[in-house]
Structure formats: C-alpha cells, structure tokens
Amino acid sequence: MNIFRLTGDLSHLAAIIILLLKIWKTRSCAGISGKSQILFALVFTTRYLDLLTSYISLYNTFMKVVYIGCAYATVYLIYMKFKATYDGNHDTFRAEFLVVPVGGLSFLVNHDFTPLEFLLVIMYVSYDMALCGPGSNCSHCFQILWTFSIYLESVAILPQLFMISKTGEAETITTHYLFFLGLYRALYLINWIWRFYFEGFFDLIAIVAGVVQTILYCDFFYLYVTKVVYSERLPL
C-alpha cells in the first residue's frame, strides 16, 4: 500500500458517497445516468467475486463490501425509490455497445489465455484442465470476469458523460462526483508508476485500461477546473 493507492481508493469512495448523498439529500437523481451506475454495479460485482475465494486484508475486504453495497444502493435509489425523478429520456447511451465488445475483449485478452489458447480450451484440446468441471476452482472464470470488470470500468462513465453533453449542463455536485472519480484514476496511474519502480509490479491489462479511463476524464477535468470554480453549473 502506498499513499497514491490509498488516496486513490479514498477518492473513489468519496465520489461514490457524494453521489449517494446528493441523491438522498435532494430526493432526486436528475442529471444522473442510471446506466452508468448499473455498469459500475456490474463492475464491482464481477471484480470482487474473489471475496468468496481469497482473503487479502481487512482493508481490502471492507472496501470491496462498501463499494458493492454503495453501488447497489445507488442503483436502488435511481430505479426504485426516486424513479420518478430519473431522467431516462436523456439517458440514451446504448450500454450494450459497451458491454458486448468489452465482454468479447475480456475473453480474448486476459492474464490466463492468449486467444489461441482460449480457442484450444473451448475446443477441449486443452493441456491440463477444462474451463469448468470437477476439481475446477473457478479461477479461470473469475479471471475473465476480473478482466471484464477492468475493461468495463474504463468505459462505464461514458453514459454519464454522454448525458451531460446531451443536456448541455451538469449540477455542481455531479461535477464534484466526476472530479473525484477522475482523481481516483489519476492517482492509480501514479500508484502503478510507484509500484513498478519499488515493487516491480506491472499489470498491463489494468494499466492500459486505467490510462484509457483517465483519458476519458481529461476533457471533463479541463472544464471542471476552468468553469466549475467560477460558476454554479457546468456549461458546455
């Protein structure tokens, strides 16, 4: 654990709490993309399945449970409790255009199989194990789902950014949410540089997806710094 990773995690937590509190206090989810929140719930669910199989630390377990819980609470508030305030007409990004390609990519490019090896596995011309069956510990499925979650997280904010560009504005509190979410990604990039130098840690899948994700926030960061500081709303 280094300071960049810790502050990154806390920044991520801050973003999630800010969004939950905003919806709860204003009794409204206007301007919030329910689709992005469903995608984030899917991200946490598929990534943290390892809660069931491996223990890393109390911190790790606690944060995972909180992230998952908050993600589902947010989806519940948007689609159930404050459904009447949900602006579905402006939340028109086609989420399947993200989930399907990301799903395909996670099968093709992951830490367990190269595409050719995967082809061999599904054709049962495999070397030492099939994907599922007696004696399987689900590690390959978990690995592919982990990869899926990494790829999906990198693009899950797109429905939210699309919604803002469509309506042409965002409430200040929504921009704070996006700022902390982007800050979390930027801090994780520094964390990976740190870990590469001091621990020799290098996870290409996480790093490439993380860079893509951070780039998606750059335009927003620019607007946030130049506009939000001076006005109540984010004009585009």
Binding site: D9, D50, T53, S54, S57, M129, S139, Q143
Partner: peptide, 10 residues
Amino acid sequence: STEPLRHDEL
C-alpha cells in the same frame, strides 16, 4: 496452474 491470480488492488 489452477492457483487463482490474486488481485490485491481495488
């Protein structure tokens, strides 16, 4: 190996 990869980051 069937040992699952451990991802320690959130």
